[in-house]
Amino acid sequence: MIVAERKPLDEIIGFIKDCKKILIVGCNECVTVCYAGGKKEVAILASALKMAFLKEGKELEVKEVTLERQCDQEYLEEIRDIIDQYDAVVSMACGVGVQFMAEKYQSMPVYPALNTLFMGGAEEMGVWSERCQGCGQCILGQTAGICPITRCAKRLLNGPCGGSTQGHCEINKDLPCAWQLILDRLKALGRLDDYDRLISIKDWSTERSGGPRKIVREDLQQ
């Protein structure tokens, strides 16, 4: 999922300080499961903003809506009939959702309520960590299912650097060394041979450094 967290309230208040009526739009997918921008968080933000305005002697009218997904044209259409009644939209989706919203509703100011952080998962309730950086050419097949691009601070592809100490990364002793994890797992799988096979120089053009990426599937296009 895409993991995000709410921006400081001050920053959000700054966006909408001159508004009288706003639409807060949550998203039912990634940001709901990471407790950043689902229905519940929409209600909490609405309540906080109303109180922040009231404190200044102003009343803010807030409409709360949570869409199935904001990165999907179909669901974004659901607010077409009401959106014009508001001075601004505060989107609680990830950066993708905010942009899709802004692209669809050109004349409406759209503000992000979240800081979008990474693609990751929940290690346990309340703890999320990064697992993939979308490099475009997945090498997990050779690295025992552990991504060194994401989890090694230096993105090394062929074993650890000299800073790996007792299984920990030199940048932070709480961070496991990705290559130690890979090695341990290859050993457990009886596949240490994979470790001896060099990963060739990676073509980073499929990663973000090659510019914004796009997929076109003609078989699905209409």
Partner: peptide
């Protein structure tokens, strides 16, 4: 924390 942030 939220209440502090909004000055309540």
């Amino acid at each position: 924390q939220l209440l502090d942030e909004i000055g309540v």
